[in-house]
Design a binder for these strands. Structure first.
Lengths: 68, 68
DNA sequence: CCTTTTAGACAAACAAACTTTACATTTAGT
DNA sequence: ACTAAATGTAAAGTTTGTTTGTCTAAAAGG
């Protein structure tokens, strides 16, 4: 699964720490997520979409391998 | 977090078992999700949105308590 | 330069998602 | 009423998300 959190974050010009606070998770969670190290929970995905005022699908997109 | 999986499933007229196969999870996972017993992973949420041909936000919606 | 902020990385521990198996209950068809 | 399909429930176990803490390294600014 891909995500464009780093891009959305750049648009808003906020740091990983800022986003961590806004979305109420740890900074490491944001960092690892941006680096594709893991996939966030749906609640967190919805929170991020809400914060960035976009749709979930605009941030997170499935890849073929996500159907294995 | 609320979800309208049961409704979407009714629209397509498919069973929990059908949806389980389509989304490649167990029937119990679908069942528990519909009953609000747990929140699916983002990958599964995206898969379901894809299957129902709607946006993730159309199926899953945050509640106030999801920000605690 | 020097200092501070920001980002990347790793590990241990815990919480939550998900699977499997198995059984009980409801619903629908005949 | 009988049967089969669909749904609900539950325990045990594996995998994955998340936190906390710490450490390194790369920007950014004075």
């Amino acid at each position: 699964m891909k995500n464009s959190i780093k891009v959305e974050r750049a648009k808003k010009n906020i740091t990983q720490a800022d986003l961590a606070k806004l979305s109420k998770v740890s900074r490491q969670t944001i960092n690892a997520m941006e680096l594709g190290k893991y996939v966030p929970s749906t609640v967190l995905a919805l929170r991020l979409a809400h914060i960035f005022e976009v749709d979930v699908n605009q941030i997170f997109t499935l890849e073929d391998s996500d159907w294995d």
